[in-house]
């Protein structure tokens, strides 16, 4: 009996593995396909976001046209709020009325891993973790594991057919789950080759221009930066509230991102402290008057101790 079962089991496992091996190849290739797909497919669905003590549902859609990429995210619960993205522009609406409009400068070419996969692999290990099923679709599980404890890890469920992201879990350096994004309904449509190519070319072109010009300025450094992070965007006088302006600098290692806000110290500035919301940490440090009174706010999806160190180095 057992003798008969063993070959049968091994035959089945070979049969199950073979299409996977054939189609998938390596984690690198899956990630490459994923970052391309996220910019060249039209997709939409209902996405749930959960972190400790909170669950939100949003409707998400992404379109590609000759003008570039547009995306729309609207909340299905609570205040009828939505964010509309058109290229580097994000418009915030409440009940259809525009309440804010931000132009995000500096497209990050690493956002699509283009040419940056080797760089990323210096700080993260990429691994295939088998297969799964999300939104009734077969998926491949890819893990992006940090090589040190200065960044977070990600477990991605990529649609086997399109390589689009169906589910993503953010992990701390000890591999504990901090937050989860997951589609609960999903549909997609491949765009014609020409459309996708036009948009991806224009995007990466724009991105590399901005990032290289920023990177060459030697004065744009932090007192301490975790290894592998580079300045990808800086924006003077970002409006953080009705009457608060701050200089914003965003740093990325191609996967994880943090922003540093620097502003003059005022009586109504943020108080010193630290906060954590899922994967996002906020560390506020105020530097007293005697020392050019400033407030440093570090916000990002990085470990708390990393954010503390960045703020403390000022």
């Amino acid at each position: 009996m057992i003798r008969k079962v063993i070959p049968a089991v091994s035959l089945i496992s070979v049969l199950m593995l073979s299409p996977f091996v054939h189609a998938a190849d390596s984690a690198d290739q899956w990630l490459q396909r994923f970052t391309e797909a996220m910019h060249s497919y039209e997709y939409s669905g209902v996405l749930v976001y959960s972190r400790e003590g909170q669950l939100d549902a949003v409707e998400l859609s992404h379109n590609v046209s000759e003008q570039g990429e547009q995306a729309r995210l609207s909340y299905l619960d609570g205040l009828p709020r939505e964010f509309v993205q058109d290229g580097g522009q994000i418009t915030q609406k409440i009940s259809g009325e525009i309440v804010a409009n931000d132009r995000i400068q500096g497209r990050n070419p690493s956002g699509r891993f283009s040419g940056g996969l080797e760089q990323i692999k210096r700080y993260y290990q990429l691994q295939l973790k088998g297969q799964g099923r999300v939104v009734d679709r077969p998926a491949v599980i890819v893990e992006i594991i940090p090589r040190d404890n200065q960044r977070l890890g990600y477990r991605l469920w990529l649609d086997k057919e399109s390589a689009l992201l169906l589910k993503s879990v953010t992990l701390d350096p000890l591999a504990r789950e901090l937050e989860t994004f997951q589609f609960t309904s999903f549909s997609f449509e491949a765009k014609s080759e020409s459309d996708a190519n036009i948009s991806s070319e224009s995007m990466s072109h724009q991105g590399s221009l901005v990032s290289s010009s920023v990177n060459r300025d030697p004065s744009k450094t932090l007192p301490w930066t975790p290894e592998g992070f580079e300045l990808f965007m800086e924006n003077q006088s970002v409006e953080v509230s009705d009457n608060h302006l701050a200089n914003m600098h965003s740093w990325s290692d191609g996967v994880s991102t943090f922003s540093v806000f620097v502003e003059p110290l005022r009586a109504d500035s943020l108080k010193e402290g630290q906060h954590q919301y899922g994967a996002t940490v906020v560390v506020v440090r105020s530097i007293p008057e005697q020392n050019q009174g400033r407030v440093i706010t570090v916000v990002g999806e990085i470990p708390l101790h990393t954010a503390q160190k960045i703020a403390a180095a000022f």
Binding site: Y49, V58, F83, N108, G111, L165, S250, T257
Partner: peptide, 17 residues
């Protein structure tokens, strides 16, 4: 910034809710 420059598309805006 993360939504326009990250790998996850607009997904990170769900954090804002």
């Amino acid at each position: 910034y993360v939504a326009t420059n990250g790998t996850h598309g607009m997904m990170p805006m769900a954090r804002v809710s």
